[in-house]
């Protein structure tokens, strides 16, 4: 989709996002439009840095240990494959690192989905380069049959996705999973609090190079949804599921949880 550069800049200026506007002005254009190649290349750079951040936060291991426990709890058996689907997988670092570590049992199929074809193609390429058994597909993860075929034998996960959804999109997000009758879901995202905002700032300033990601890092913490909002949306969208947010008590800083998951298990 061609984006008019000047128009996008003025929208951001109007919203008072001056820093974002300044960053956008530096993206190359072809005539009046943002150059697609430049935008794609920037997207890849940002996601490579993001993957690296996820690695520093040990996202793969966090996901693996939670999913391992979920699999035991669900008792899905080991004969027919169970599928683990990463929604909005980006470059697929989480699934690729799980595949590389062999932390989860081999009857688990790993499938990453992203709507952005540039990201899913690069994820697939990286998996090939390292000879990892993960499949990546492009499209809307909740389109039946695309990534989720047999819902009751599927566990859905995401990392850093929920804060990209507006509060009023959350219900539909959980509803889509309930309609596919997935066995369980676990979505990791940043908790909105002073500690995580501060932590996000430090990590993005110290470890990310692209101005876009530095800018977005702190915005992400500010956009994040509270546990109450997430649980309410999940209970409304997926009423047949037992839902909870696995985070520490109020008495220790939430930053200790880094990204905490909202977990739902079909009852």
């Amino acid at each position: 989709m061609p984006v008019m550069s000047a128009e996008a800049v003025s929208v951001l200026e109007m919203r008072g996002q001056h820093r974002a506007a300044k960053i956008l002005r530096q993206v190359p254009t072809t005539g009046a439009e943002l150059a697609t190649d430049a935008v794609d290349e920037l997207g890849l750079k940002v996601h490579r840095e993001l993957s690296r951040l996820g690695e520093e936060l040990q996202l793969g291991r966090r996901v693996a240990s939670m999913v391992g426990a979920l699999l035991q709890q669900l008792g899905l058996g080991t004969v027919t494959p169970v599928r683990l689907v990463d929604v909005g997988c980006g470059l697929g670092q989480v699934l690729r690192s799980i595949a590389a570590s062999g932390e989860l049992p081999p009857y688990l199929e790993l499938v990453g989905v992203d709507m952005n074809p540039v990201l899913s193609a690069e994820a697939a390429r990286l998996a090939r380069v390292e000879n990892l058994d993960v499949r990546f597909v492009t499209g809307n993860a909740f389109e039946p049959g695309l990534a989720i075929g047999d819902g009751p034998r599927t566990v859905v996960l995401s990392t850093g996705l929920l804060h990209h959804l507006a509060a009023d999109q959350l219900v539909a997000f959980f509803q889509a999973q309930a309609e596919l009758r997935v066995a369980a879901f676990a979505h990791w995202d940043i908790a909105p609090c002073v500690w995580s905002t501060l932590g996000a700032w430090v990590f993005h300033q110290a470890r990310m190079r692209q101005p876009v990601s530095r800018h977005d890092g702190v915005l992400s913490a500010r956009r994040a949804h509270s546990a109450d909002v997430l649980v309410a949306a999940a209970e409304q969208g997926a009423p047949g599921y037992v839902v909870d947010v696995r985070e520490g008590s109020r008495w220790h800083p939430r930053a200790l949880d880094v990204l905490r998951p909202i977990v739902g298990v079909r009852g």
């Binding site: 520093e56 040990q58 291991r61 966090r62 932590g199 990590f203 300033q205 110290a206 470890r207």
Partner: peptide, 18 residues
């Protein structure tokens, strides 16, 4: 432990890089 490694980055290594 791996769960807490990032704390060393958040508290010492990251800020000291800055």
């Amino acid at each position: 432990r791996w769960e807490f490694k990032y704390l060393a980055s958040a508290v010492i290594l990251g800020p000291f890089t800055l």
